[in-house]
Simulated assay, not measured.
Amino acid sequence: MEEQETRRGRAGRRQGLGVSSLDMVVTLVAVVVVVAGLSVSLIFPPDAPEAPVADEGRRAPAAAIPSPAVADPVVPEGGEVVVPPLAMEAERQSAQLVCQALIGTTELTALAYNIKSARAGSLDRLLGVMQRSGADVILLQEVDNRRRSTGSVDQAAWFAERLGGWHSAFGRNVTFGDGLYGTAIVSKYPILSSVNTPLPNIGRAQPRGLLHAVIDVEGVEVSLYSTHLDNTSANIRTQQASRISSMLAADPRPKILGGDMNTWPGSGPEQILTSRLDDSFVDAGSGSGPTHPASRPRTRIDYLLYGGPDLTPTSSVVMSEGGSDHLPVRSVFTLGGIKTEKCSDGAASKKSKKGGGDQPTQENTATPE
């Protein structure tokens, strides 16, 4: 009996030792599995969820873009292609690189007109002649300024306003009790400066002057001169022509001199002026040349002379218009030196002021040289 109990006790102890060893093995295996799982998760983290694509393109990671100029467009789920901002900026920069600066030309039409203070017609009639001429700049002689005898009107300003808000300059040569008398310049282009210089005179002859205005033609400065030489003495006209010639020689700009010279082609004063300047009617004229008297023209005493760089006449005519005792002379010039910018993508060209400075952007109508 005791021997059997002793055997049962030994068997129970062996069974207990076996069960305890198994539990320890199981626990150890579980620990190893957990540790291994943590190690794997640390070495190979799970993929992050994809962020939704926004309505506008986002910049891709640097490693995904071979170069900014060739970034691939993003295609969201809706199917619309969205170009990344970096690619759009690169495209804009690329478009700017194909733009190039050019030097172009523009057309400038001038009119020289002795209006006889509107005494032979009316201001409206003279205005019609100016409008039909298509002139951009008008050089006037025998102009009244607030004289009661012609309606107390500043005639130059009157024409400028009705031509579309143009610009005007007046050169006083004679002061009357009721107003002023002299020459004028009316311009579609802005007048940067103006000055009237008295010309040589002798005795009691009527005072004469040279009105000089500098205008801005698409960024290029152009000098305009309007004058009316003496009608009583060849000696006075010669002195006046010499003074004008020396003054224009000191002006480096493209320039146009227009006016009633009271002298005919080939005369001494005319030769003095054309030794410094060229005659647009001689170089590009057509039709009849006489300008006075308007009712039956016999001689040419009204001129449009020109000089300086980048100014070339393409046509010149004497207009058969009434309204004064002189016929107006109209000349068309090509003016160079106009800065332009041309882009290969077809964008509108822009003109900029010659020599620098900010200018409003405009549509390019110039012809590149």
Results as ranks from 00 to 15, higher is better:
Thr232Ala: 06
Leu335Asn: 04
Leu22Tyr: 07
Gln15Cys: 13
Arg13Glu: 08
Asp154Val: 02
Leu102His: 11
Gly16Asp: 13
Leu229Phe: 14
Ala135Phe: 07
Leu229Tyr: 09
Asp345Thr: 10
Ala250Cys: 06
Thr175Cys: 12
Gly266Trp: 01
Pro309Glu: 07
Arg296Leu: 04
Arg8Val: 08
Thr361Gly: 13
Leu42Pro: 00
Val40Pro: 07
Ala250Gly: 07
Ile272His: 01
Gly289Pro: 00
Leu139Arg: 03
Arg7Ile: 13
Asp124Lys: 02
Glu142Tyr: 05
Gln4Trp: 03
Ser349Thr: 08
Tyr113Val: 00
Ser331Pro: 03
Pro254Trp: 11
Val153Ala: 00
Asp144Asn: 15
Val53Phe: 10
Ser320Tyr: 02
Ser39Tyr: 05
Ser67Ile: 14
Thr274Phe: 04
Met88Ile: 13
Thr334Pro: 12
Ser20Val: 13
Val75Trp: 13
Asn262Cys: 04
Pro269Lys: 03
Gly219Thr: 11
Cys99Ala: 13
Val33Ser: 04
Ile301Gln: 00
Thr314Phe: 02
Glu142Leu: 05
Gly182Lys: 00
Pro45Cys: 10
Gly258Lys: 01
Gly18Glu: 15
Arg204Pro: 04
Glu321Ser: 10
Pro254Cys: 12
Tyr181Val: 04
Ile236Val: 10
Val74Lys: 03
Arg243Trp: 10
Cys343Val: 08
Ser152Tyr: 06
Ala60Gly: 09
Thr183Ser: 10
